[in-house]
Write a protein that binds this DNA or RNA. Structure first.
Lengths: 205, 205, 205, 205
DNA sequence: GATGAATGAGGGTTCATTCAT
DNA sequence: TATGAATGAACCCTCATTCAT
């Protein structure tokens, strides 16, 4: 009875493994530099088997991109509309950093795509712009209410993105500078504290 | 007499053209994704001719990396030792942003290399760490002198790097969100103002 | 009791479907260009299922070839020995053309095999040559009896074959030249009339 | 001075060799069944070298098709407008057969393309139809003048095409039936004689 | 009997690089 | 110095076929 279910689940699991492998490979080498052999190796399967489960490298890449967008949407869809900037920003920054340090390759794939002009991201960006616009309105509301000093609501968001993603993109550099091993974990709490303080104090009226 | 000089100069010029082409190609596709054909096309020469002037793709990439490090060294080597945090930071941020918006591909190549684990950057990083450590000491001095609030001097530097480079890495995204054309210039002064304010106010004692 | 019979019949039916699909695929692309996926699609079954019923692509091809030979044998085995050239030829040409227009793919597969040197047809050709020789004798008899003008009995047969099969092989071209749709039927009667006249008059003593 | 000319000539020669190899391979296996390895082998060069000279297998195929059309155009462009059916047809049939026996693979490639629906021939066929229409008019003129018996001018042309090309398409079969070796030459004069007689007598008023 | 999964060989093509002139 | 020709390795992907259930 659940033979079918088992099969479906297995397929799903393998697909997840492949996706993870693809994210790692794309994060390191970008779309063009990534090889299906490399993805297969990371997934622990043969190249032929990989191609049995995917349509093409580009399709897999697009799927990864969609998956990333989905992850980020999930992560911030439930954000409560708040008139408490401090609480909201603390939460937002903490989440972003947590995710960045947990899944740095996700940010890397995204940035890699943006750096080449984001040809496969445009479809998603219309929705992103709308969401970012709504957030900008909220920030403008805070400014109007005197809760934070006057800032450009769009640039503030870009700045927070950059502060939180940088520890994913440049993790290797950060580790090196701090004298850590290449696989040592970064101190999430400390980073969160420092970034949060910079932003919150930087916005004081 | 100056035939030799002319030749040398011409060679130098072509080399600069090739380097610029390489930076653009590497910025878009990374080391592995970049093609010598793509570099040749951007340089306006044949692939054969390109290979006459370079040793290999990897060598050219290493040279580009060295060049980038040199550029950044030049940019900040003359920074005066200062006990005026605000003045220093204003200048530092402005320079970083100016360079980022002027030569975004440089930051992209650098980040791309870091994202793949920076295997060809380690040689330079010992010196970078030393310089960053000296800067950290200066920042610590500011803290000790009560000129700025207590911060982690290393993370502060990472944060400033991220804020200033983000507009290079994610220029495409920023333009899209702001409704600008893909080749429209970003508003350097406005960005500088916003980033500077965030940092300076964020550091107030 | 007739469960077995049903199964056998079902198997036979499916086999006929597969054969028809194979003929269509081989007619379009030849042995090497044909894909088992294409055959499976035409048969409306999965590739795996197809391979469950056949031994290999080559074997299926050989079987198709045997089937074709069998069809033609059936078609002309009962031809009565006749001393009436006109009657005989009218009947022969009409049958050939009828079959060609009805099952053009059969002629195409055959010609395709001949064009590649007929490696899998040689086994049959000994018998064919014998039959063709007997027919040549009959034709020679007509010549000797003054019923038709002197002709090479072998070439006459080749010529008739070519005239009748051409409307199968080149149906697409004929349709295009006549301004017909790609799937419009050709005018069998008219073609039969024209070909028959050309041959009969061409043989008048 | 003629270094360039030599290079160009060499290139031209190699291209001719490649085209001949391609015609042979396509004649035997069709577009889909042909392999670039097979073409390279026939041309006596490596597969890599082949791909240095061609754009793609499909492009090479299209070029071969264009070449074939060009050959046939050349062959019959200078045909004089004549009110002497016999002279004209003798010449036409003789030329067609000469070409067919000399370059049978050309006819095979053409027929192979037609058999798969002629997707890459349609562009040429508009011109072909026009030419065939003009020839049909001429034939109709002969009929009107009482020089030949009433026939369908289009079908007459198809029939002549089939009679002349058949010895190219089915050369293997013909040789086998006649007891000739696979590489023995066919008796051009005899075939020409037989075909010509069949047609001329078949058209007598 | 039937089906999804798997695979080794080979498909066409591109690549960075070297050769030859 | 400069260029067309050449090449071996690698690329992404498809193929006919077999396995496992």
């Amino acid at each position: 009875m659940n033979v079918r279910a088992d099969l479906a689940q297995r397929r799903e699991e393998l697909h997840a493994v492949i996706r993870a492998a693809a994210i790692a490979e794309f994060a390191e080498h970008g779309l063009r530099g990534a090889s299906t052999q490399g993805i297969a190796d990371r997934a622990g399967i043969s190249k032929t088997k990989l191609h049995y489960y995917i349509t093409s490298k580009e399709d897999l890449y697009q799927e990864v991109l969609d998956h990333i967008i989905g992850l980020w949407d999930d992560l911030f869809h439930e954000t409560p509309d708040s008139d408490d900037p401090e609480g909201f920003l603390r939460d937002y920054i903490a989440r972003k950093l947590l995710f960045s340090l947990e899944y740095p390759d996700v940010s890397r794939v995204f940035t890699s795509e943006v750096m080449r002009g984001a040809p496969m991201l445009r479809a998603h960006w219309d929705a992103s712009r709308t969401a970012t616009g709504r957030a900008a309105d909220r920030i403008a509301g805070w400014v109007a209410a005197g809760l934070i000093r006057p800032v450009d609501p769009w640039l503030l968001q870009f700045n927070i993105w950059s502060l939180t993603q940088a520890y994913a993109l440049h993790a290797t550099e950060v580790r090196f500078m701090l004298g850590l091993d290449d696989d040592a974990p970064l101190d999430l709490d400390h980073i969160t504290q420092e970034v949060t303080q910079l932003v919150l104090r930087g916005l004081r009226p």
